[in-house]
Amino acid sequence: MSELLGLENLRKVFPVRAAAGEPAGELVAVDDVSFTLPPGGSLAVVGESGSGKTTVARMVAGLETPTSGRITLDGEPREAARAGRGARKARARQIQMVFQDPYTSLDAKQTIEAAIEELLRAHFDWDADRRRERVAQLLAQVGLDKRQGGARPRALSGGQRQRAAIARALALEPRLLILDEAVAALDVSVQAQIINLLADLRAETGVAYLFISHDLGVVRQISDDCVVMHRGRVVEAGRTTTVLDDPQDPYTRRLLSAVPRPGWVPRRRATSGASA
């Protein structure tokens, strides 16, 4: 099977400074994580707060250096150190990231159109007409109209801003889009629109998703495969439907049983206040 993204025994250790009563030490944020993602696939990384999801995403995006392990793109090491400037630029283009807070990737002073146009100018030798055409196409793809495209981020609603961030991320035709809690902050009704949009965009463009989320319902809608993380390690991995319908690991089971649904009753576990 062909493979777009590959992670092999990825590990990330952060130094921890001494704090009140605690000596300095190390924090293993990601511990021996491996998985692969095929072209056009959608893989979700799920787990609770602090389990290491964002750290994995940041390493794949090149924003963080792994302590050890390997990340490959089309079977080649992600950091092709000897590659020329052009090749590096092309590689950077292949992976784009969308964050929970769209302001992270949008410039407050720029209109949405101008931001996308600038990105296109930096990467392609296109004339102004071609760029304008592409901007219009991208805006239409994510469901923003002309007026919204001409607006600054602050003048848009939360859902519209996230659409704009997605349009910008898609501008360079990446092969992999990393979405880190990209729908987590949205109102339920708007979140449903963006989930549907993401499904459509993958079908239309063939882009692959690395979808980071703590929300198992959202993960079920958006991913083909999933990886469950707990304390930096992968505790379970497989087809999303299989993992969610028939979880094998006790932690995955615990996670699933805690999701409110019709007929659900919250239960107190045997554990007490032992964990601070």
Binding site: S189, V190, Q191, A192, I195, D215, G217, L244, D245
Partner: peptide
């Protein structure tokens, strides 16, 4: 009804009903 249908289910996959617009 729309709000209930917007919430992705953990038990099955179907395209979500989406209420248009924003609150």
């Amino acid at each position: 009804v729309g709000l209930l249908a917007s919430r992705p289910s953990t038990v099955d996959v179907k395209r979500l009903w989406a209420i248009p617009g924003r609150p």
